[in-house]
Lab assay of single mutants.
Amino acid sequence: YETDHQDYCEVCQQGGEIILCDTCPRAYHMVCLDPDMEKAPEGKWSCPHCEKE
C-alpha cells in the first residue's frame, strides 16, 4: 500500500530502516534521533519536530 511518508531519514537523508512519525510525513533512523533510540517505539510515536509543536 502507498503511504505519504518520506522514504528517507529527515536527519541524514538516507534510506534504510526508518521509523515513521504518526503525526507528520517525516521518517527517521533510530540512531539519528537525539537521544537515539535503542528499539522501535510501540504504539503511536511523534517525531521531535511534532513533540515541539
Rank of each mutant, 00 (worst) to 15 (best):
Y28D: 02
H5E: 07
G15A: 10
Y28L: 09
K39F: 02
P25A: 05
H5I: 13
I18M: 12
C21K: 01
C21F: 00
P35Q: 04
P25F: 13
Y28V: 10
D22Q: 13
P35V: 10
D22K: 12
Y28M: 12
C12M: 02
Q13D: 14
Q14P: 01
I18A: 08
K39Q: 04
C50A: 05
A40Q: 06
E10H: 03
E53D: 02
E42H: 03
Y1E: 15
C47M: 00
D7E: 12
C21E: 00
R26G: 08
C32R: 01
C50I: 02
D7I: 03
Y8N: 08
K39M: 13
D22A: 12
T3A: 03
E2L: 15
P48N: 01
P48Y: 09
S46W: 12
E51H: 03
D22G: 11
E10W: 12
I18L: 06
E10V: 06
H29A: 00
C9E: 00
A40E: 08
G43V: 03
S46C: 12
E2P: 15
P25R: 10
D7G: 11
V11P: 05
K52W: 04
P41Q: 08
L20S: 11
E51F: 03
P48T: 08
T23N: 06
S46K: 02
D7P: 04
E51C: 06
M30K: 14
H49I: 08
E42D: 06
K39G: 11
G15C: 02
V31G: 11
C9D: 01
S46G: 05
D7C: 00
I19D: 07
D34A: 09
W45V: 14
H29K: 00
E38P: 07
H29L: 00
Y1N: 10
M37E: 03
T23Q: 08
P41M: 10
T23I: 05
D22N: 08
V11C: 13
G43T: 05
D22C: 08
A27L: 07
R26K: 10
H29P: 00
P35R: 12
E2W: 15
A40F: 12
T3F: 12
L20M: 11
E2G: 13
I18P: 03
E10I: 15
E2S: 15
C50D: 07
T3P: 06
H5Q: 08
T23P: 00
D4K: 15
C12W: 00
D36F: 04
P48F: 07
H5C: 09
E10T: 09
H49L: 06
C32L: 01
H29T: 01
C47D: 02
Q6P: 07
C9V: 00
Y8L: 12
E51N: 03
V31C: 14
E42I: 05
C12F: 02
D36M: 06
H49R: 10
H5V: 15
Y28P: 01
L20F: 09
Q13E: 10
K44H: 04
C24F: 00
C24S: 01
A27Y: 13
P48K: 04
C32T: 00
T3I: 13
Y8R: 14
T3Y: 12
V11E: 15
E42C: 11
G16Y: 05
T3M: 14
D34H: 09
I18E: 12
Y8S: 13
M30Y: 03
K52M: 03
Y28K: 05
Q6D: 13
P35F: 11
I18H: 03
K52V: 07
Q6Y: 05
A40H: 15
T23L: 08
P41G: 14
M37N: 14
Y8I: 09
H5S: 15
E10Y: 14
D4T: 07
H49G: 09
M30D: 05
H5W: 05
E51Q: 03
V31H: 13
Q13A: 15
L33H: 04
T23G: 06
C47F: 02
P48R: 13
C32Y: 00
L33N: 02
C9L: 01
Y8C: 06
C21W: 01
E42M: 09
A27G: 07
V11Y: 11
Y8E: 08
Q14S: 05
A40G: 07
E53S: 11
D36S: 15
S46D: 07
C50N: 04
P25K: 04
K44E: 13
G15W: 06
A40C: 10
M37L: 10
G15T: 11
D22F: 08
D7Q: 14
C47W: 00
D34K: 04
L33G: 06
E2Q: 15
H5R: 14
A40T: 07
D34L: 11
V31M: 03
C47N: 02
P41D: 12
D36N: 12
Q6S: 12
L20Y: 07
P48D: 07
P48E: 07
G15L: 10
P25M: 06
C21M: 00
E10D: 08
W45R: 07
E51G: 14
C24M: 01
A27C: 11
E51T: 07
I19Y: 02
L33T: 14
K39T: 06
M30G: 08
G15R: 13
Y28R: 05
C50T: 02
P25Q: 10
I19M: 15
K44C: 07
W45G: 12
C9S: 01
I19C: 05
Y1L: 04
K52F: 03
A40V: 09
Q14C: 04
A27R: 07
Q13M: 14
E17W: 03
I19W: 06
Q6F: 02
V31S: 12
P48L: 08
W45M: 14
V31T: 03
Q14A: 04
S46Q: 12
L33E: 02
L33K: 08
L20K: 05
